[in-house]
Write a protein that binds this DNA or RNA. Structure first.
Lengths: 105, 105
DNA sequence: TGGTTATTTGGTATTTTAACCAATAAATCC
DNA sequence: GGATTTATTGGTTAAAATACCAAATAACCA
């Protein structure tokens, strides 16, 4: 694998890695429905504010979300709405796995 | 977030996490074109055979690929071809990031 | 059978992630 | 200005991921 190919896959992996956490997938799902402030997401997820804030910074760093401060709150939105389409495929893998498990019983 | 929701996102994250590595994304791309044996992938990636074998077992464990031994070789194929569609979206994020960088210059 | 090849598994060292608490920063309200 | 609220950042600790080497398996061939 040459250097260019390698860096292309590293760039992709960075984005996939940024999504590779239950809370971050949940956040993406929420933002697909509209903007959310950190406090809303924190309430829904039920973790420490600092933890949620760090998840958001991972998504932001990867270019998946953007933020906007209004008053005391910071609102996050999806930067590239297409990411929500990913879920239908991932769901397909999840379902296929469950079917395979059932078939093996 | 209730227990059921939590476990749904954990299941999704497991699959996304399995893809979250440059070599594993490369493998998925290769398998989208057809089956490949471990040795072919090892040659292309340029890592130790044991390393590639472990990447493949991560993908297999997540239900993304399946394997079939024929003779001395083990051939891997995609179990859910739709995963290749993920790339177009990830590429969109990559492009969008590059554009944002350029705009900031 | 013995040797060769392809792959997996076990072990280890290093790096990366993740969670929480505490402290800081920024905006608002009195 | 001082208190309050929202969010981020720094620090620490524990868990997970990654790479390589070495050893074990499995299938083939002479």
């Amino acid at each position: 694998m040459d250097a260019k190919t390698h860096s292309r896959y590293r760039a992709r992996a960075k984005i996939v890695k940024a999504m590779a956490h239950p809370s971050r997938l949940f956040i993406i799902d929420q933002l697909a429905e509209g903007e959310r402030c950190v406090c809303e997401l924190t309430d829904m997820i039920g973790a420490d504010t600092s933890t949620v804030s760090k998840h958001l910074s991972v998504l932001k760093e990867a270019g998946i979300v953007k933020d906007e401060k209004r008053g005391l709150q910071v609102f996050y939105t999806l930067r590239t709405p297409c990411v929500t389409r990913l879920f239908s495929c991932i769901e397909a893998v999840v379902k296929s796995n469950i079917e395979a498990q059932l078939a093996a019983m």
